[in-house]
Amino acid sequence: MTSGSVTGPGTGEDEPRLVVRLEDVRKEYGDHHALNGVSLEIRSGEAVAVMGPSGCGKSTLLNMVAGLDRPTSGRVTVHGEDLTGLNETGLALFRRRRIGMVFQFFNLLDDLSALDNVALAAQLTGTPARQARRRAQELLDELGIADRRNAFPAVLSGGERQRVAVARALMNRPALLLADEPTGALDSHSGEQVMDLLLDLNQIGQTLLLVTHDPRLATRCANRVVDLADGRVVGERSLERAG
C-alpha cells in the first residue's frame, strides 16, 4: 500500500496533536453504569486498543467518541470539537468530517456495489458522483480489491467486505478511524489481512481507536492498550508492536 491518498489529517506534525479527550465520562442505562468516570486522551498518530471482557463498556466508549451516543455526564472532545454540545445534525456532520468507522459486521449497503458503497460517504457531503467514484477507485486500488469494485456485498468474502468498509471509512480523510471488533466476524486469514491493513494505515499516520477483546489484534495494531472493567479504566500500557 502506498501512502498519500489514504491518510487523513494529522500527519507530518512535529507535536502530536490531541485528537480525542474524554473527561470523567459516565453513561448510565437505568441502573446499569456502562461507563463510570472514564477519562482518556488519544494523540494524533496513535493506535489505541480498548480491551476488556464483554459488557465492560468498550462499545459504549466507542459510541461516545463516534458521537453515536451521548454521555450521561462528562465531556467528549474530538479534534477540538465538544460533542456534548452538538445536536443530531451537528453530530452527523461531525461524523462525516472527522471520523471513519469500521464495524464487526461491515454494515455495507447490499444494493450498492463495492465501489458505490465506498463512494457513498463522499457523495453525502455533496461531492459529485464522478469525483467520488474516482477517489473510491483509488482507495480500493490501495486496499487491494480494485478488481472487486463492481461486485455486490453478497458475493464478497468477509475479508473483502471489511476492506470495502475500511475504504468507505477512509473516504473523507478522517482524523480518527474507529474500529469495533473489526476482525470479529472474519476467518483467521481474512483477520490477518485486516490487521495488516490497519497497521499499515497507522504507520502512515492514521490515528486509530480499536475496540476488541482479541489480544492478537491489539498487540499487532496498537501501540497503547487501555483496559476497561465495569465501565472504568483499570489499566493502560504501551506496546511494542508485533508487526
Binding site: 443530531e88 445534525t89 462525516r96 468507522m101 454494515n107 460517504a121 453525502l124 457531503t125 468507505r168
Partner: peptide
C-alpha cells in the same frame, strides 16, 4: 441497519 450505517457515515437526520 442500513439507516444506522448511513447515519454513522454522516447522513444527517
Amino acid at each position: 441497519r442500513d439507516l444506522g450505517m448511513l447515519k454513522s457515515i454522516g447522513m444527517t437526520p
